[in-house]
């Protein structure tokens, strides 16, 4: 087992030190098992479910497909970093109130994907929402309440702006 003697990852603005890690460890594994950040979930190990979505330098990517030791020069943001004060973001709030959460395993990844979508596009069309979320599998909800949650956030943000 080859190990990197030592490396650092900057997650949610904080530097974390990793030692004695195996080279093949994914960022998802390191976040969950070494850094105590289990909010990102693993369900497929191949980028086909989106449960492990994090932001790397602002891009929403699957952390299961990022070699952890390769992210040493990047800014990593996880679901734990969305709201440092412990309250819910508007997206998280809408997921709860609109019934977008059942078992909840896909939820952190979807919350990240929705935040990313709405940061880039504040009034997405129905098809833009669906395409943006097409990499996040939800097995419980059939997506209907997830779309409702996105609609709610868009409407509230629009109302807040106007």
């Amino acid at each position: 087992m080859s190990t990197n003697e030592f490396y650092s990852l900057k997650v949610n603005g904080v530097d974390h030190h990793v030692s004695d890690a195996w080279i093949g460890e994914s960022l998802l594994y390191v976040l969950r098992e070494r850094l105590g950040l289990p909010g990102s979930k693993g369900a497929c190990e191949q980028g086909e479910c989106g449960s492990c979505t994090v932001f790397i330098d602002g891009a929403a990517v699957c952390s299961c497909l990022v070699m952890a030791a390769s992210a040493v020069e990047s800014e990593i943001a996880t679901v734990e970093g969305l709201n440092a004060d412990g309250t819910l973001t508007d997206v998280q709030e809408a997921f709860v109130t609109e019934g977008a959460v059942q078992c909840g395993f896909c939820t952190p990844g979807l919350v990240m994907a929705v935040h990313h979508l709405l940061d880039e596009n504040d009034s997405p069309s129905e098809l833009e929402v669906k395409e943006a979320l097409s990499g996040n599998i939800c097995r419980c909800t059939g997506y209907g309440r997830i779309f409702a949650a996105v609609d709610k956030v868009v409407a509230v943000r629009r109302g807040a702006l106007s």
């Binding site: 929403a60 990517v61 699957c62 990499g135 996040n136």
Partner: peptide, 9 residues
Amino acid sequence: VGSPQIRAA
């Protein structure tokens, strides 16, 4: 190609 997350990476 894959998902939006895959296309970003």
